[in-house]
Design a binder for these strands. Structure first.
Length: 268
DNA sequence: AATGGTCGCAACCGCTCAATA
DNA sequence: ATATTGAGCGGTTGCGACCAT
């Protein structure tokens, strides 16, 4: 018995998200939380599949996302984890706060894979490449289909752990936690919803409110830093959130603040 | 400047899993 | 025990941006 489609295909919009749709989704989730993806589009006034909303939120709009290319150290972690876990992108992503499985998967396919091949390492087995394999795997857009067969081979060549899909939820990055933290941050939230004056932000406030020395922080359940949070908010501004009920003018001032780690993130 | 090829990212599709009735 | 549903995962594709000719 086949599954019912996750949404009514008729009248469901596909393709790239518009700023307007992003606004609606953000506004709804900030108000109601990321729940009931199936019902969300209707409630939020979006002509989108719930699945599409979830993807948009988790891969692009989530406030705790890092932007930009993976750093060298992140890449190394991905390579190490891939050697152990295979193509289990969500598992790998759970070790990299602020990174999504989709992002890591894309980065793997577009950057790391090539890098490893160049270094003479088979990106599937993580063992030294045979010479003919190097030629075979030289990247070309036309070779997408072969790569799919490659990936299906991957599954068989992956560590046995791959087939044993035991639940490891404790390791899975809980993307709701950052959201809860955002929601619990009453000052920020009420400001985002347009109820309050802009929060006064200084370095010490950032550090204390982010519990930078808190053990929990090491578990990556926060924004990586306030500047990243602010960066996300600035992205909101980029796609026109300033037109919403939200008022994000204060972000221009935030930009002027010298955040800890800000320069690191810029360079990455 | 025009054109064709390539690249990289965002989004979609189909499947599986877990929870629930 | 079984059917149904919601959510998540991994593979694949579409398309705009970029580059070479």
């Amino acid at each position: 018995m086949g599954r019912q489609p996750c949404c009514d295909k008729q009248g469901v919009k596909k393709g790239p998200w518009t700023a307007e749709e992003d606004k609606k989704l953000i506004k709804f989730i900030l108000s109601n939380g990321p729940c009931c993806w199936r019902a969300l589009p209707k409630l939020a006034g979006l002509r989108r599949c719930g699945k599409s909303c979830r993807l948009r939120w988790t891969n692009y709009l989530r406030p705790d996302l890092k932007r930009g290319l993976l750093t060298e150290s992140e890449e190394q972690i991905v390579i190490d984890l891939h050697a152990r876990l295979g193509n289990r992108w969500s598992k790998i992503a759970s070790h990299l706060p602020g990174r999504t499985d989709n992002e890591i998967k894309n980065h793997w396919n577009t950057h790391i894979k090539k890098k490893l091949i160049k270094m003479g390492v088979d990106p599937v087995t993580h063992k030294p490449l045979q010479k003919n394999e190097t030629n075979r795997t030289s990247s070309s857009r036309k070779q997408r289909s072969p790569s799919s067969s490659e990936t299906s081979n991957t599954s068989s060549s992956q560590p046995s752990e791959t087939t044993n899909k035991s639940k490891e939820t404790s390791q899975i990055y809980d993307n709701t936690s950052s959201f809860e933290i955002l929601c619990n941050d009453e000052i920020l939230l009420s400001y985002l919803l347009g109820d309050n004056e802009p929060p006064l932000i200084d370095k010490s406030t950032f550090e204390s409110r982010n519990n930078i020395n808190d053990e929990n922080c090491k578990n990556d359940e926060m924004f990586a830093s306030w500047d990243e949070c602010a960066a996300w908010l600035m992205d909101c501004q980029d796609f026109g959130v300033e037109d919403m009920d939200f008022k994000l003018d204060f972000l221009n001032e935030v930009e002027m603040i010298d955040f800890p780690n800000a320069s690191d993130n810029q360079t990455n």
